[in-house]
Nucleic acid binder design. Structure first.
Lengths: 232, 232
DNA sequence: TTCATGCATTGATATTGATCAATCTGCAGT
DNA sequence: ACTGCAGATTGATCAATATCAATGCATGAA
């Protein structure tokens, strides 16, 4: 593994408090690998053999049942995914595939679990990480249950706007097909929602969105920090 | 606090590995309290001053935003709620109210956090608990995104049936209004879903449900262990 | 008992969002 | 450049679910 990757991982909240020799041991058992876009990584129901860290690119977590399929989340650098399955030594609840060429780190779950048993600092870091993941799913669920499709799309744009430091123009970080599924709607409806929002402060141009009237946008989509704020 | 309560709490996965004196310290700072039905316990956005344990009764976790409201989960004895907020010292993401007369244990969050800092065994127990909570929300989300209203209702009945040890007749553990909200639909639609399922292996009578043809019920609602199985 | 209240049910209708179909666009590969 | 393909858009229609309204049915209080 390249030293730059090593340092990036080392600086993750999850690993930064680990005892150095434990961290090295964990890394020795792990390996980084480059994947092309649209490659299946894991399949729900399979045993959780590895904990994954996204170093570059992006990964879609999705789930399917009886012919239907839905995206649950997109994981971007630098964060882990399927930590809960790894910890519980339980089957994955979600499948994963790359949506862009991606560099991933694979850590054998057994090693993660034993590090977690031996290193109280690591265990604590995992608690915090899991609590954050939990709260983030709860927020997604509130987003789904308490909002209409248009509100979900509007708030997604508001968040993008904030993440960009309120730039006039923001760009969708992945395809509309994926976004629609994440937001719990069909691509057709996402398209129509974008259309409808153009009279409420935005201007679409392909994957680029110009925010022309933030106040109007907020008026229509009613942001709520207890749903949208990634912190808190 | 009564000794029986003490023993019940002590036997929770979350607390059973704690060092005895830490457990006692935690309990000393905590207090049990009886609440009538339909009492508001916490409001989303408030600081997480206490970790709650449901000893008796049942508690609804719900959330509201701009006039809409939705139940997220019902917590029954013996389990904790809002653990993630307590750990992160972050505001509650959900509100809580009793739906039946309930006995609750309130543990000051500061004490929980310091026990978690000092006691590696407790920290590990919390990890497991949080991982379980996380996976349970993910399952709820899959349930919502991958299924129709009727399938959600059907699978809810299948789960009830299993929990009862496959008794011929099961009883809804709380009101249909709450159930509808949990399952992401209106009470009217829940009513209609029950009606529709009567031609698929069940027989409704108020809050009592007779399962007359489990196979027919499963055929219509297509259970999936990666959504419905509380373990795994 | 009687009333009032809240929940459940039922039917009619409205709205939302999904599906289907056709077209368009932009990019990758040749 | 051309071709082919996947994704995006648009419109028409359909299905699912919500809303509104009316009624019925319990339960508990007076």
């Amino acid at each position: 593994m390249r030293d730059t990757d090593r340092d990036i991982i080392r600086n993750l909240n999850l690993f930064c408090d680990m005892q150095p020799q434990r961290f090295e041991a964990l890394l020795t058992a792990a390996y980084a690998q480059q994947f092309p876009a649209h490659v299946d990584l894991i399949r729900e129901g399979d045993p959780a053999d590895f904990l994954y860290v996204v170093l570059e690119g992006s990964v879609e977590l999705f789930s399917a049942s009886h012919g239907r399929e839905s995206s649950m989340a997109v994981v971007t650098p630098v964060s882990t995914f399927i930590l809960a399955a790894t910890i519980k030594d339980a089957p994955y609840l979600m499948s994963a595939r790359t949506i862009a060429p991606s560099k991933l780190l694979l850590m054998p779950s057994r090693n993660v679990r034993s590090a977690f048993d031996d290193d109280p600092d690591f265990a604590r870091a995992i608690v915090t990480e899991l609590a954050t993941c939990y709260r983030s799913v709860v927020k997604s669920m509130k987003n789904l249950k308490l909002r209409t499709a248009i509100e979900r799309v509007g708030n997604y744009i508001v968040r993008l706007h904030d993440k960009s430091g309120r730039a006039d123009i923001v760009e969708l970080p992945f395809g509309k097909r994926n976004l629609a599924s994440i937001l719990g709607m069909t691509p057709e409806n996402l398209s129509r929602a974008f259309g409808a929002l153009q009279s409420h402060g935005i201007l679409m141009d392909g994957a680029r969105i110009e925010i022309t009237d933030r106040a109007a946008l907020e008026a229509i989509c009613k942001p709520n920090p207890l749903i949208d704020d990634p912190l808190s």
